[in-house]
Design a protein around this nucleic acid. Structure first.
Length: 871
RNA sequence: GCCCUGGUGGCGGAACUGGUAGACGCUACGGACUUAAAAUCCGUUGGCUUUGCGGCCGUGCCGGUUCGAUUCCGGCCCAGGGCACCA
C-alpha cells in the first residue's frame, strides 16, 4: 500500500473501475424497491460552479447511501439546453447557439465525471435534441385539443433588452428576471396554458406533500393565492347600457367583503375594462388617462406606492340590493388581470378605496363597527379605514350581524336574485409560453390566411429548429428565414406561414424527470418504465426554483396524467432545497472613483487578540475593504473554480468539505482553511489504514477476548455506524455524520495496542469508518476497502447494521444535579434501578456539599441519564 | 402590510422526544520533532473568578410552565427570504 495519499491516482483508479463495470446503469427490476434520486439538471453555461458541485454531491451521497441500503437506484443527468444565454453568446462570438451549447455540454460533462458521481450516463438527454422537444410539441397539440392551450392577444411584459415576452413570474419588481431591465407593456398574440384550471388542485395537494419544506409549500400557496368571496353584479343603468350598446347587462365585481356591500359609494374599474374603453370613446380626457395607464411604463412595484389616480366615467350602475345609483370610476389601482377587473369601492372599510375617496371627494359610509362599537371611520376619518371584520350597521335587514354571518346572508340573498354567488378567486394567472426567440422549442402551429391558426399534424412532428443560425440581436432570426416559416396549410394546402415563436424554456424542464425513465423510447413521450421509476423519491435543487419550475412541473405532470400518459399527480415526493455557496467579498478604490474587487485568496485578514476581524490587506500591504458574504460570481471576484479545487486536492476533498461545513439546506461559507482541514482528515484516514495494514495479518474478531479499552473502542465504532445511518438516511444531515466518523478516528488514534485482539477490533472499526464515509468520499474509500483486504468492490457492499451487543455498556456515567445545576457525576452498573442511582447520587462528594444541612424535597431520577436532587 | 425562516464561543456549526450547552472542524496561542521551513504530533481555547478542588454568569430581549428550558407557551427586538394596490 502507498504510504502517501495521492488523490489523483486513487480517483482515476476508482472511476476506471466503475466505468469498466458499468456500475451505475439502472435497470427496472419489478418487485425491488426503487429510489429515484434527482438533482436539478444544469443549464450548460460553460463551466460548473460551486453551487452545482454542492447540488450534485448531495444527490450523490443519498443515491450511494440508498444503493447500499438495497434500493434500486436511478440517478440520471441531463441538460436544460435551450435559453437566452446561448443566443447572447452567439451574438458575442458569432457562433450558432447549437454549437456553443453542445461544446459547453461536452466540457461540463467531463467536469461532472471528475466528481465521481454515481450517474447512469446512458440516460443523458439535452432539451435541445429534437427527440426530446418533439414531445413538448406533441403534448402542446393535445393541450390545444383539450382546450388547455389557447391563443389570446393580451397585454404582455416586454423585456426591451432581450426583446422578448416574459411570464408574470419572470418579472421581478417590474424588471426582467434575467436582464434586470424595466419592463414595458405590449399587445402580442400568444399561446397560454390554463394552469388556472388546476389552481385548486395544485393548492390543495400541497397539504399532501409532507416531504417538502414548509417554506416552499407556503411560497406556492401564496403564489396560487386562493381567496373565498362573492362575485356580484351591479346592473347597468340605462345610460351605461346605451354607451355599451346593449340591454340589461351588469358590471361584475369580486369581493371578499360582501358584508360591506351597503358601504359601497362607487365602483372602480381598471383602465383596460370594457366600460372604461367605451366611456373613453366620448371623453378625450378619460381616453388620455386610459391610454397612459395601459402604456404603463409604470412598474408594478411603483404602483403599490403610487398615488391613487382616476377619473369618473360619467356612467352609473345600480346597487344590487338597494337599487341606488352608483358612479363608475376608472382607477389606476384596479388590476385588469385579477377577478373581474372591477371592484366595489367601500371607502370606510378598505384602505385603497379610502385613499381614493379622500382625494376625489367621494362619500364615505360606515357599515361595520368593531365588536365593541368603538370604531367609526366617518367620525374618525384621520384614523383611516376600518378594514377589520366586525358587526354590520346601517345595512338594512342585514344590520347587527357579524361579518361572517353577513357575508353568508348577503350572498344567499344575492344568489336568490340572480345577482351574485359565492366564488373562489385565485391570484395565479394562465401561463404564457410564447417567446419571440430563436433558441427554443418551436410552437407547432401554421398560420393560414384562410383557415387561421392550424395545428401541425402529428405525423409532421417534430417541427425542427434549424441549428445553424446566428442571431444578430434584433428580433427573432426564425422570422427572417423563409426556409423555416414558408409552408403549406395542412387543412387547405395553400401557402401559409409557420409560427416562429418558441416555447418558454420552463416547458422543457417541466417533464424531463419523466423522460429519464425511458429516454430511448422513440414512439411515445413516456412508457411503462415511467410508472416504475416515478415519482422522484428525492429531488434536490436551489430555492430559487421554489415557485416557477416546481409549480409548472406539478401542473405539467397533471396534464400528462389527464392525457392518460402517467398515473401520478405529484412528481416529487421529497424535496431538498440546498443553500447557496457564499464567499467573502473584498474590494478597494482604484483610480477615478471606481472600485476593484479582490479575490479572497489574495487577502490576508488581520485579527485582534479575540480573533475578531479588524482589517485586511493584499500581499503588497494595501488595505482592502470587507463587503461581507455573497454568492460566488465573476463580477464580485470571489469565485472558486471547481476544476482547480479538484486538481489540487481531489474530488473527495471537495465533496467532503461541502458536506461537512454546513447542513445541506443552509448556506455554505467558503473557507480555504476548511478545504485544507477536509484534505487533512482524508490523509489521516489513509494513514490510519496504512499503519493498520502494515502491522501484519489480522485475526478474526470472533472468540477474541476483549479488555475494557477494546470493548469501548468497539462500542464507539458501532455507535458511529448507527449514528451515520440515521443522519444520512433519515435526517439528511451529513455534517454530523462526518463529525461522528472523525470522533471514531480520534478514538482509534488514541488507542495504542498491537495485540491480536486490538488488530481485530481496529480492522472492524476501520471498515466501519470506510463504509460510513463511502457515500461522501467514494474514491478514497474504494481504494481503502481493497487495502483492508476485500476482493469485492465497496460500491457493491451492502450497508452493515450496528451490533447491538457491542453497544452495551457495563458501567454508565450518570449526571447528578442539585436544583437543576450540574454538581457531579457517578458511575453505576448499566441496569441499576432508581434506588441505586439515588443512593450513589446522594453520596457523591461535591453533591454532599450542596445538600448538607438542607431538606431534600424531591429526587428526580432519569434512568441511565441523570439524577436531580431538589432541596 | 401578510407569509416563511433564522438569532448559540473569535468563526462554520452540534445538542434529534424538555435532561451534562458548545460535539466535530477551523482559527489563534503554547509545546515536541527539524539546521530551518513545510508536513506531522501533543496541549490550551465562552466570559469572570479561584494557588487548586471549585464557584458565578452565559444560547437576541422580557415574562410564564417545569424538579429541570437552546428546546414548550405568551409578548417583543433584530436579520434574511417570499408575496404585495390581488379587492
Amino acid at each position: 500500500m502507498q504510504e502517501r495519499y495521492d488523490p489523483a491516482v486513487v480517483e482515476r483508479a476508482a472511476q476506471d473501475y466503475w466505468n469498466a463495470h458499468d456500475a451505475f446503469a439502472a435497470r427496472e427490476i419489478p418487485g425491488r424497491e426503487k429510489y429515484y434520486c434527482l438533482s436539478m439538471f444544469p443549464y450548460p453555461s460553460g463551466r460548473l460552479h460551486m453551487g452545482h458541485v454542492r447540488n450534485y454531491t448531495i444527490g450523490d451521497v443519498l443515491a450511494r447511501f440508498m444503493r447500499a441500503q438495497g434500493r434500486n437506484v436511478l440517478q440520471p443527468m441531463g441538460w436544460d439546453a435551450f435559453g437566452l444565454p446561448a443566443e447572447n453568446a452567439a451574438i458575442a462570438n458569432g457562433m450558432p447557439p447549437a454549437k456553443w451549447t453542445r461544446e459547453n455540454i461536452d466540457y461540463m460533462r467531463r467536469q461532472l465525471k471528475s466528481l465521481g458521481l454515481a450517474i447512469d450516463w446512458s440516460r443523458e438527454l439535452a432539451t435541445c435534441d429534437a427527440d426530446y422537444y418533439q414531445w413538448n410539441q406533441w403534448l402542446f397539440l393535445r393541450m390545444l385539443e383539450m382546450g388547455i392551450a389557447y391563443q389570446k392577444t393580451g397585454t404582455v411584459n416586454w423585456d426591451p433588452v432581450d426583446m422578448t415576452v416574459l411570464a408574470n413570474e419572470q418579472v421581478i419588481e417590474g424588471r426582467g428576471w434575467r436582464t434586470g431591465a424595466l419592463i414595458e407593456k405590449r399587445e402580442i398574440p400568444m399561446y397560454y396554458l390554463r394552469i388556472t384550471d388546476y389552481a385548486d388542485e395544485l393548492r390543495a395537494a400541497l397539504d399532501d406533500l409532507p416531504g417538502w419544506p414548509e417554506r416552499v409549500r407556503a411560497m406556492q400557496a401564496n403564489w396560487i393565492g386562493r381567496s373565498e368571496g362573492v362575485e356580484l353584479s351591479f346592473p347597468h343603468d340605462a345610460d351605461t347600457a346605451h354607451v355599451l350598446g346593449e340591454r340589461g347587462g351588469a358590471l361584475k365585481v369580486f369581493t371578499t367583503r360582501a358584508d360591506t356591500l351597503f358601504g359601497v359609494t362607487f365602483v372602480a374599474v381598471a383602465a383596460e375594462h370594457p366600460i372604461a374603453l367605451a366611456a373613453a370613446k366620448h371623453d378625450a380626457k378619460l381616453a388620455g388617462f386610459v391610454e397612459k395607464c395601459r402604456r404603463g411604463s409604470t412598474m408594478e412595484a411603483d404602483l403599490a406606492v403610487q398615488e391613487k389616480k382616476g377619473l369618473p366615467t360619467g356612467l352609473h350602475v345600480k346597487h344590487p340590493l338597494t337599487g341606488e345609483r352608483v358612479p363608475v370610476w376608472v382607477a389606476n389601482y384596479v388590476l385588469m388581470g385579477y377577478g373581474e377587473g372591477a371592484v366595489m369601492a367601500v371607502p370606510a372599510h378598505d384602505e385603497r378605496d379610502f385613499a381614493f375617496a379622500l382625494s376625489h371627494d367621494l362619500p364615505i359610509r360606515t357599515v361595520i363597527k368593531s365588536a365593541n362599537g368603538a370604531y367609526d371611520t366617518v367620525q374618525a376619518p384621520w384614523l383611516g379605514a376600518y378594514a377589520e371584520p366586525g358587526v354590520t350597521v346601517d345595512s338594512g335587514e342585514f344590520s347587527g350581524l357579524s361579518s361572517v354571518q353577513a357575508v353568508a346572508r348577503i350572498a344567499a340573498v344575492l344568489q336568490s336574485k340572480g345577482l351574485g354567488a359565492k366564488r373562489v378567486q385565485y391570484r395565479l394567472r394562465d401561463w404564457g409560453i410564447s417567446r419571440q426567440r430563436y433558441w427554443g422549442c418551436p410552437i407547432p402551429i401554421i398560420h393560414c390566411v384562410k383557415c387561421g391558426a392550424v395545428p401541425v399534424p402529428d405525423e409532421q412532428l417534430p417541427v425542427r429548429l434549424p441549428e445553424d443560425l446566428v442571431p444578430d440581436g434584433s428580433g427573432n432570426p426564425l422570422a427572417k428565414l423563409p426556409a423555416f416559416y414558408e409552408c403549406n396549410c395542412p387543412t387547405c394546402g395553400g401557402a401559409a406561414r409557420r409560427e416562429t415563436d418558441t416555447m418558454d424554456t420552463f416547458v422543457d424542464s417541466s417533464w424531463y424527470f419523466l423522460r429519464f425513465a425511458c429516454r430511448d423510447q422513440p414512439d411515445a413521450m413516456v412508457d411503462a418504465r415511467a410508472d416504475y421509476w416515478l415519482p422522484v423519491d428525492q429531488y434536490i435543487g436551489g430555492i430559487e426554483h421554489a415557485i416557477l419550475h416546481l409549480l409548472y412541473s406539478r401542473f405539467w405532470t397533471r396534464v400528462m396524467r389527464d392525457v392518460g400518459l402517467v398515473k401520478l399527480s405529484e412528481p416529487f415526493t421529497h424535496l431538498l432545497t440546498q443553500g447557496m455557496v457564499l464567499n467573502h467579498i473584498y474590494q478597494r478604490p482604484i483610480l477615478n472613483g471606481r472600485r476593484e474587487y479582490v479575490n479572497p485568496t489574495q487577502v490576508t485578514v488581520q485579527v485582534d487578540e479575540q480573533g475578531k476581524r479588524v482589517g485586511a490587506t493584499t500581499a503588497d500591504g494595501r488595505q482592502v475593504e470587507y463587503e461581507g458574504l455573497g454568492t460566488m460570481s465573476k463580477s464580485r471576484g470571489n469565485g472558486v473554480d471547481p476544476n482547480s479545487l479538484v486538481e489540487k486536492y481531489g474530488a473527495d476533498t471537495a465533496r467532503l468539505f461541502m458536506m461537512f461545513t454546513s447542513p445541506p439546506e443552509q448556506s455554505l461559507e467558503w473557507s480555504d482553511e476548511g478545504v485544507q482541514g477536509s484534505f487533512r482528515f482524508l490523509r489521516r484516514v489513509w494513514k490510519a489504514v496504512h499503519e493498520h495494514v502494515a502491522a501484519g495479518p489480522v485475526p478474526t474478531l470472533e472468540a477474541m477476548p476483549l479488555d475494557d479499552a477494546l470493548k469501548d473502542l468497539r462500542r464507539v465504532a458501532h455507535h458511529t455506524l448507527a449514528k451515520v445511518t440515521d443522519d444520512i438516511g433519515r435526517r439528511h444531515v451529513f455534517n454530523t455524520a462526518i463529525a461522528a466518523v472523525m470522533e471514531l478516528l480520534n478514538a482509534l488514534g488514541k488507542h495504542h495496542d498491537n495485540s491480536p485482539a486490538a488488530l481485530a477490533v481496529h480492522q472492524e472499526a476501520l471498515e466501519i469508518a470506510v463504509q460510513c464515509l463511502a457515500p461522501i468520499v467514494p474514491h478514497i474509500t474504494h481504494e481503502l476497502w481493497r487495502e483492508l483486504g476485500h476482493t469485492g468492490a465497496l460500491i457493491d457492499e451492502p450497508w452493515r447494521k450496528a451490533d447491538e451487543s457491542a453497544l452495551q455498556q457495563s458501567l454508565l456515567e450518570v449526571v447528578v444535579q442539585v436544583n437543576g445545576k450540574l454538581r457531579g457525576r457517578v458511575s453505576v452498573p448499566a441496569g441499576a434501578d432508581e434506588e441505586v442511582l439515588r443512593t450513589a447520587a446522594l453520596a457523591e462528594e461535591n453533591v454532599q456539599r450542596f445538600i448538607a444541612g438542607a431538606a431534600i424535597r424531591k429526587v428526580v431520577v432519569v434512568r441511565g441519564k441523570l439524577v436531580n436532587i431538589v432541596v
